[in-house]
Nucleic acid binder design. Structure first.
Length: 775
DNA sequence: CGCGAGGATATTTTT
DNA sequence: TATCCTCGCG
């Protein structure tokens, strides 16, 4: 039921402001989903707008699903007709209808991260790219950024003329694009970019969608990239009823192409725009909000706003500095255990937020030791799992046989004696005849240069033929069984899995896939394997929920059981993954300079990077409802080396009174260190010069390193903790070359050194890992 | 072709 | 320290 009374003034304003461009600046926990869903309800129920004309667009399937559910709850009739979808899913649907207009087969496929990598590998080999100089990952990233900016290969080349490196990348981009096209495939970025292309090339198609989507709402607008901006801009350009919701302070995906100026400059793009700020927070205590405000206010380029709430002051923010990452993890584990046994707290009320995935290891160890149920929220999704990718590759080859990427994946999996060389010959033959890789298998005997392998390839062909019979005669579930059976896939997995647990997990994945297939088959009048793949490859959609279990290893339980289990588990996840979530008890671990903000950010010369990192911190803090604990370690293993760090600068940005420390100190001296010897050590360390374990220095510069000789005679920090260079000295850096030391600042345990490099410019870095050598 | 040893490498990642 | 990838040998 639509209920305007239940909203606060600002929220209500946003709901009833339906005509023209509207920017809703929604602070963390200010009820933006509520506004969005009620706005849809208002449009339909009060203004009589046809649900068919309303579009709500999100980034994640999860967000779309949630919005869908909540719209269903408040709207009685027509809720299903509201277009609630992600950017990618929206574009996918549009592209399926119009792909031919851009020269793609209507049955094109989505190429995911794994496929992208293999395509890129191929491209590099063909172009003779030195993958030491041009890393595949970096190339893909660069291409992805170009697509985010709607740059075609030729535009990319034109924009970077004269830059040898970038011109080379342009070449790769071009070839990569050709390869995708040849495979009738698009990557995720293409979906958006090609849709924009389509709209620009076919005005009547654009107009159709403009008329269809008369009211557009965009969630998480601060995360949009240029391509997404353009897409929305085009769609909204006719009726201009565009409502965007976002929070510039929560923009944390610049590295992925998000353009914060989309939200910052919204009023420039739409001068007639109405701006509404939602600043009342319904999630956290006053102390937590003040801490968040204290941190974020250090950013320059942002829309001024300040969160407030009616809630009580609440607990102080806890801060604890430990000696090692392991003791930090133990501290958190023990603290959670203590809360659970003495207060009315469940494991599921707690979340540990980390900056990088590697930090999870110590936490997991600690939780296991104390027998605390936990779940690691991993980046890897069900459909990206190797097992699932293998089996779906089989299914796709069986169903269509036109996708070379899938065929190449399984033609020799499990190993059946078809090596890379044979596949290459087969591929060349297929290209010559203009047929697909799989289709070429039939003619293995005609392929020049294939001796023994020809029989093996024909064997593979027979296998697929047999399985095709099964597909025609049986259910999808039976087909999957047959695939697993005939390929002896389980035996293959048995060799593949390092542990029994891993093996069991894989079995569960397969069972889930079977279940999903069966459900699909039962629910659809004309079940089609390719359609199934398409739906799930990008959408995941309705399946995510049940698949979460398999993903996290909970297993084959009902949805309710899984939910129950989740509630009983502490979650460990990156701060990026935590966006949009909330927990009564939040721990932010690894709050150290060099880790968070990351070393890259500190040494890099872009102040915007630091602002982004600070926003991430803001996101982390605002996840907490009742209780927030910040921890850090003085010493931590990073990339196989012991790294020493001080407390994060972000902690120092939190107004001191909000922290539960007794002694005010910028240096985060330990106020309540129980162990006198540890306390003594800590105290000394703060007053001492930075200390780097001699062995660590020596180990790193063993033979083979061109700098080893130089370092042996004068490593960056001497064993007594003083620096081997001073302001004015000339030093060398492994990456940046030679430069002159401009400034040395003592920051507690470490030195922050500013160097003006001859070629790389001015850089700030920490002495303990900058590897500077006096020359 | 398949395996294993050794080398390089190392943020964050909705789709 | 862990993982991923390559290269060389059997």
């Amino acid at each position: 039921m639509l209920s305007l009374e239940a909203l606060n003034d600002r929220q209500r304003e946003a709901v009833v402001c339906t005509e023209g461009p509207l920017l809703i600046l929604a602070g963390a926990g200010s009820g933006k989903t509520r506004v969005l869903t009620n706005r849809a309800a208002y449009l339909i129920e009060e203004l009589g707008v046809n649900p068919w004309n309303i579009m709500a667009i999100t980034f994640t399937n999860k967000a779309a699903r949630e919005m869908r559910e909540r719209i269903d709850e408040i709207i009685k009739v027509g809720a299903r007709d509201v277009w609630v979808s992600t950017f990618h899913s929206t574009c996918l649907q549009i592209m399926f209808r119009h792909a031919q207009k851009l020269g793609y087969d209507g049955n094109f496929e989505i190429c995911d991260a794994t496929d992208q990598r293999s395509v890129m590998k191929d491209v590099c080999k063909r172009l003779n790219i030195d993958t030491k100089m041009y890393k595949e990952r970096m190339l893909l990233n660069e291409i992805s950024r170009a697509k985010d900016e709607l740059m075609t290969p030729s535009e990319y080349r034109a924009a970077n003329e004269g830059d040898y490196r970038k011109e080379k990348i342009a070449l790769v981009y071009e070839e990569y694009q050709k390869t995708l096209k040849k495979n009738n495939a698009m990557d995720f970025d293409d979906l958006i970019m090609k849709t924009v292309e389509l709209f620009l090339a076919e005005p009547e198609v654009l107009e159709y969608y403009q008329n269809r989507f008369r009211y557009i709402m965009v969630d998480e607008y601060q995360d949009t990239n240029t391509a997404q901006f353009e897409l929305i801009h085009l769609l909204a350009n006719k009726h201009r009823n565009l409502c965007v919701v976002g929070d510039d302070d929560q923009s944390i995906y610049k590295f992925r192409g998000a353009n914060i100026y989309n939200i910052l400059d919204f009023e420039k793009t739409y001068p007639e725009a109405v701006v509404i700020k939602l600043e009342q927070n319904y999630r956290s205590t006053q102390n937590i909000l003040n801490a968040a405000n204290g941190v974020i206010r250090n950013n320059q380029g942002r829309k001024e706003k300040s969160l407030w709430c009616d809630a009580a002051e609440g607990n102080k923010i806890h801060f604890k500095q430990l000696d090692t990452a392991a003791s930090e993890a133990m501290y958190i584990a023990e603290d959670i255990k203590k809360k659970v046994s003495s207060e009315r707290v469940h494991y599921g009320d707690c979340a540990v937020l980390i900056r990088t995935n590697v930090q999870s290891k110590e936490l997991e160890d600690a939780f296991r030791l104390l027998q605390i149920d936990y779940d690691l929220v991993k980046g890897l999704k069900f459909w990206d799992t190797k097992v699932i990718k293998d089996l779906t590759a089989y299914l796709i080859t069986i169903a269509s046989g036109k996708n070379d990427m899938r065929t190449a994946r399984i033609i020799n999996l499990p190993k059946r004696g078809i090596g890379a060389a044979s596949i290459e010959k087969l591929q060349a033959y297929a290209e010559m005849r203009g047929i697909s890789l799989y289709e070429a298998c039939e003619f293995a005997d005609d392929v020049p240069g294939l001796s023994k392998a020809a029989d093996k390839i024909k064997g593979f062909d027979y296998l697929i033929q047999r399985l095709r019979t099964v597909m025609r005669e049986g259910s999808f579930g039976e087909l999957l069984d047959a695939v697993v059976d005939e390929t002896e896939y389980m035996e293959y997995l048995g060799n593949e899995a390092e542990t029994p647990e891993k093996y069991a997990e894989m079995q569960e994945y397969i069972a889930k896939l079977r279940e999903t297939l069966t459900v699909y088959e039962e629910e659809n009048e004309q079940p089609d394997l390719m359609e199934f793949m398409r739906q799930n490859g990008v959408e995941g959609s309705a399946l995510d929920k049940s698949l979460d279990g398999a993903q996290t290893g909970i297993g084959l339980l009902t949805a309710e059981q899984e939910q129950e289990m989740k509630e009983r588990k502490v979650l460990i996840m990156t701060m990026h993954n935590a966006k949009g979530l909330e927990f009564p008890h939040v721990y932010m671990a690894g709050m150290e300079d060099g880790l968070f903000p990351s070393y890259m950010t500190i040494t890099g010369d872009d102040p915007l990077e630091m602002e982004e990192e600070r926003r991430l911190c803001y996101v982390g803090i605002t996840r907490a409802k009742e209780d927030l604990t910040l921890t850090c370690a003085r010493q931590r293993m990073v990339n196989g080396e012991t790294r020493y760090s001080t407390a994060s600068r972000f902690i120092k940005e939190i107004p001191f009174g909000l922290l539960d420390m007794k002694v005010p100190s910028v240096k985060m001296k330990q106020a309540d260190e129980p162990n006198p010897s540890t306390y003594q050590k800590a105290k000394e360390s703060f007053h001492q010069k930075p200390y780097v374990k001699p062995s660590a220095v020596r180990k790193r510069y063993s033979e083979g390193n061109p700098y080893a000789a130089a370092l042996k005679k004068g490593a960056e920090i001497k064993t007594d903790g003083t620096l081997s260079y001073d302001v004015g000295d000339r030093v060398t850096h492994v990456k940046f070359g030679e430069g002159k030391v401009k400034e040395i600042k003592s920051g507690g345990r470490d030195y922050e050194v500013t160097v003006d490099f001859d070629t790389a410019g001015v850089k700030k870095m920490f002495a303990s890992f900058a590897k500077l050598v006096k020359v």
